[in-house]
Design a protein around this nucleic acid. Structure first.
Lengths: 156, 156
DNA sequence: ATGATTTTGTAGCCTGTGCTACATTTTAGG
DNA sequence: CCTAAAATGTAGCACAGGCTACAAAATCAT
């Protein structure tokens, strides 16, 4: 085994990333995925509140494409995590934390869509893909996106 | 309620996307998420086979940052879906389907990393973010990425 | 060759996120 | 006002993907 590992390390035709680094990458992606659902909910709730004034579980469910039971369960989780509040048979509202999360999420979403469009992705496709991509874009990448967009809207 | 809906539709201060469209977007993102794990596994297995010649469950687990039990369960799922094969106490191998999936995934991964770098994301950050982003980039967006990279490597 | 270590596999548990089915409450309409 | 429809909430199920703990097999090293 020692010999085998050594051989692999020296004679590897394709070099692999460090084991620990790679594990961290995947762990980070898994963590992002875990918060993705909550982010989608707060963003949607915020949008509904801003547009119609109401964020009812049924509306949320329809827009997310899930059953109302699923939406209600997820809303319960939002409440557990201190992002939303709701009273029986009243709509759902966001806590200050929820609201600020929604703001961050919306800004990020917009930046991602804009960047995709800027590099030539058709608008409709950009909107579609952004829904999944946005949850995995770090602040550093986001900052780079903003710089890129600024550079390419002012300069030729 | 009819009146209420009408009011919302006409007086909405923020316009929302169509309900069905939005639901489709989220459904697509959820579907992408479902295949993400399988994609990560086949890509990693393919890398391991290409570099060291062996893809053992323990190695896979370590690189993904999960317990070996989790890895074995996921490998079982790969086998169920016809992407991989394995014999007791031998390593894991990819079926032709698994191999071609791995090739597609790797190409996509590389394109995503390259694009991120091209728009100014630091290399290390690009590698990190790409791990989560790649699963949500459609073929159309990928094609756009390729065009962008070509344009920006040849032209000034 | 045999005993220790490593690897592999199994079993059972938890959580998250979907679902359907049923019960309840509110809302709307006649 | 009172019934029918819609919305809401609850219960219970399935499956994916984590985990730990235990059991069995293979490999290494002496």
């Amino acid at each position: 085994m020692t010999a085998k590992k050594l051989a692999a390390a020296t004679a590897a035709p394709v070099e692999m990333p460090d084991e620990a680094d790679q594990a961290l990458r995947f762990e980070k992606a898994r963590a992002a995925q875990a918060s993705a659902l909550l982010e989608d909910y707060v963003e949607l709730i915020d949008d509904l509140l801003a547009s119609g004034g109401e964020a009812r579980p049924t509306d949320i469910a329809r827009r997310l494409g899930v059953s109302h039971a699923t939406a209600i369960k997820s809303i319960a989780r939002l409440k557990r995590e201190g992002l939303a509040t709701s009273k029986l048979y009243r709509g759902v509202f966001l806590t200050p934390e929820g609201h600020s999360l929604a703001a961050r999420v919306r800004a990020r979403h917009r930046l991602v869509v804009d960047l995709l469009i800027a590099v030539g992705v058709p608008r409709q496709c950009a909107e579609l893909d952004a829904e999944g991509i946005e949850h995995h874009v770090s602040d550093a990448a986001l900052a780079a996106f903003a710089r890129f967009l600024k550079r390419h809207s002012t300069a030729s």
